[in-house]
Computed example of a mutant assay.
Amino acid sequence: MFDVILKKGKEKAVVQRHPWLFSGAIERVKGKPANGDIVRLLNDKGDFMAYGFYNSQSRVALRLLEWNESVEIDENWYRKRVAMAVASRSEILNDNNNTCRLIFSEADYLPGLIVDKYADYLAVQVLTSGMEREMPVIIDELQKLLNPVGIFDKSDAASRVHEGLGTINQVLAGQHPPGIVEVVENGIRYGINIAEGQKSGFYCDQRDNRRIVAAHAKGKRVLDCFCYTGGFTLNALKSGALSVTSVDSSALAIETLKTNIGLNKLDISKHTTIQSDVNKQLRALREDGQQFDIVVLDPPKYAPSRSALDKAMRAYKDLNRLGMLLLESGGLLATFSCSGAMDIDTFKQVLAWAALDAGKEVQFIYQFCQPEDHPVRASFPEGEYLKGLLCRVL
């Protein structure tokens, strides 16, 4: 096993069990470990600190796995971690919910591994070279624990290039998922496309938030922006919304949403779909003088890194300003950010600026977060990426 020597004074984060070590904190590397090799991390005095995956191409040069020198990182170590992660989600899965995130990367001590359960299928995303090496063991353990019909590798994230990895879309075990896999979340049925859909096929991180917003929807006019396949839309219609208008730029998402409305036998006369750029459509709705009681804004990640935060703040401000202008006085804005670089206090400030520009007053009445199958590890606050606010706009 190769040794990586830490620069003097760079021990704090490692001691606090943060799982990332950036290349700038490394003094030297003994030997020439390959990308994905497990190495020992030593301090400047030669004392053991941790084991981790090494990658010379990534800015995160080490993904730390284990801080106990006597623990061997072997096949059983990975099997135990997978089993612990799966067991911790057992209470989420029931007749009303057969989809969730089974493994959430660093939060489950398996850096770079994401596994989502969609009914009888599993979708996998591998983001690190070290974890990619261990996939035969991971897949075998998942099969033993869950006996899925199929496991599909959807490792097409752009971040893989930083690990020296290409994109993968292939069956790892069992059957290829059909074009539409039917899942149930909050008692609502969804047809999802694992192989061709966004991310791993579905956004189960909004499960609780969809239910919370829907509790306010009875008799209300709802505008669902960046609706994708209809998470907020379907929950609102089921809860008795007077009308729901759903906007997304993806034709595939809109068609899947229409199919999902049929699956749930919801009143299609109360629903309108618009395939359009959301910002453009918000302006068009404003020009038409339309008003709503609830506006949902669930945009994609505007700030993929801290360097993009200033630009993202401007984008979030403009988006939320437009949303506020479409609300009746006293209406509700359910607004989200999935940018890890945007913390909740910054997001509140952006909304305050948006309200000022819109000539509105805003009350924060609820704070949204990611659900329990997306845990945040105490030593890795970066895992808290999803945040949102339910605002009363006056």
Rank of each mutant, 00 (worst) to 15 (best):
M1A: 11
M1E: 14
K8E: 12
K10A: 14
A13D: 08
V15G: 00
Q16I: 02
R17H: 13
S23R: 15
E27F: 15
V29T: 14
A34Y: 10
N35V: 11
G36Q: 10
N43K: 08
F53L: 05
A61E: 12
L64F: 03
E75G: 04
A83E: 14
A85W: 10
A87D: 14
N98W: 08
C100D: 09
D116E: 13
D116T: 11
L122K: 04
T128F: 02
G130R: 02
G130E: 02
M131G: 04
E134N: 06
I139D: 09
Q143F: 05
L145K: 10
D153R: 01
K154Y: 11
H162R: 11
Q175F: 03
P178R: 08
G187Q: 05
R189E: 08
Q198Y: 06
S200F: 01
Y203D: 00
Q206G: 06
A215F: 00
R221T: 07
L237R: 03
G240I: 09
V244P: 00
D248N: 05
N260D: 14
N260F: 07
I268F: 13
H271E: 01
S276K: 06
N279D: 11
K280M: 07
R286K: 15
G289V: 03
Q290F: 01
Q291F: 14
I294D: 04
L297N: 15
D298P: 09
S305Q: 09
K311A: 12
L322S: 10
G323P: 13
M324E: 14
L325A: 13
T335C: 13
G340C: 02
M342G: 07
D343F: 00
I344H: 01
Q349S: 13
L351N: 15
W353R: 12
W353I: 15
K360C: 14
Y366G: 01
Q367R: 13
Q370F: 00
Q370K: 03
P371K: 00
D373M: 08
S379W: 07
